[in-house]
Amino acid sequence: MKSWLLQCWTLLRQLSGDDAYERYLRHQLSQHPDEPPLDRKSFFKREQERKWHGIKRCC
């Protein structure tokens, strides 16, 4: 039960993008260990600019 709830929570965080920064840090540390990662604030700003650059919403 507890692990099931945890799984739902993880899924919810992933769905909403709440954990985006943590995922970015993991990706950055494993793929580009030599570059310093962005801080949370600038990462979030960059992500939002990028996200709304294309067609994201429909009729």
Binding site: L11, Q14, L15, R23, Y24, H27, Q28, Q31, E47, R50, K56, R57, C58, C59
Partner: peptide
Amino acid sequence: GRDYVPTNRWVVFGHHFAAIAG
């Protein structure tokens, strides 16, 4: 890690549905 990110299919389903449902 930005545009191209392997993602759990339920998460993609959620994003896709949120995008198409207007």
